[in-house]
C-alpha cells in the first residue's frame, strides 16, 4: 500500500506543501493564476504548530480503512477508490452536513466552495491523494515540494522499516555500548530547534 508518510522530526514548518497542494487542486495548476481563480483552490494538507516553537506537523487525510467518514456519510458521497486505495469524495453527492468532520480522527475535513464544472457550492474538501498526478506517474504535490524529506511517498511497510532500523540501532548501541551513530537531526537543525525550545520554556515558566 502506497501512502504519504510523515517523517515528523524533519518538518521545518515552511508550509510549502500547503501552497503546492492548493495549486495542484486549482484549475490552472499554475501558482500565479491559481490566486485569481474563483472559487479559490484550497489546501488539503495543514501544517500545524507543535507544542513548542520550531516544531510542526503536516496533517492530512490518512485514507483510513475502514474510514469512519465513509461509514457515517448519509449520502454515500465518500467512497473508497480501489485503484489507489484512497478515500475520495464525490462533490455532487455531498450535502455538507459535516458528519464526516465529526468522526474524523485527524480533523482534516474542511468545507469550501468547489466548482468542478458546475456552479460553486460548499462541499467537504480533503486530500485526494493527488490521484490524477499519481496516475501520470508523479508523486503527490506535497511530497514533490518537500525538500527536507518530511513528506515521503512510498510503500508504507518500507517507509516504516527505515524508522525501525534506526530504533534497532539505538537499542543495540545502548545494550552493547558501541559508539552511537550520528544524530538523525543534524547540528544546524538541532541548534535551531534548541532556540525554539528555549523560548517556549521561558514562556511556560512565566505562565505558571
Amino acid at each position: 500500500m502506497k501512502t504519504v508518510f510523515v517523517n515528523i522530526e524533519r518538518c521545518v514548518g515552511c508550509k510549502q506543501c500547503e501552497f503546492a497542494c492548493a495549486v495542484a487542486h486549482s484549475r490552472s495548476k499554475d501558482p500565479v493564476q491559481a490566486l485569481y481563480e474563483d472559487p479559490l483552490p484550497r489546501k488539503r494538507i495543514h501544517v500545524e504548530p507543535g507544542p513548542v516553537f520550531s516544531t510542526a506537523f503536516p496533517n492530512k487525510c490518512r485514507h483510513c480503512d475502514p474510514a469512519p467518514c465513509m461509514q457515517v456519510c448519509p449520502t454515500a458521497a465518500i467512497y473508497r477508490d480501489r485503484e489507489q486505495d484512497l478515500v475520495l469524495i464525490q462533490p455532487a453527492k455531498c450535502i455538507a452536513c459535516a458528519m464526516c468532520a465529526m468522526v474524523c480522527p485527524f480533523d482534516v475535513l474542511t468545507y469550501y466552495p468547489l466548482g468542478n464544472g458546475g456552479p460553486a457550492r460548499v462541499v467537504a474538501v480533503k486530500c485526494d491523494g493527488c490521484a490524477e498526478r499519481v496516475r501520470k506517474g508523479l508523486v503527490p504535490a506535497c511530497v514533490e515540494t518537500c525538500k527536507v524529506g518530511a513528506l515521503l511517498y512510498g510503500d508504507i511497510n518500507e517507509l516504516v522499516q527505515a524508522g525501525r532500523l534506526r530504533e534497532a540501532t539505538a537499542v543495540l548501541v545502548a545494550a552493547t555500548a558501541v559508539a552511537p551513530p550520528p544524530s538523525p537531526v543534524p547540528q544546524p537543525v538541532a541548534l535551531w530547534r534548541s532556540g525554539g525550545t528555549a523560548i517556549s520554556k521561558l514562556r511556560s515558566v512565566q505562565e505558571r
Partner: peptide, 10 residues
Amino acid sequence: QQPLCGYCEM
C-alpha cells in the same frame, strides 16, 4: 504565524 518557516529561521 505558527509554525514559522524553518528555512527562513535558519
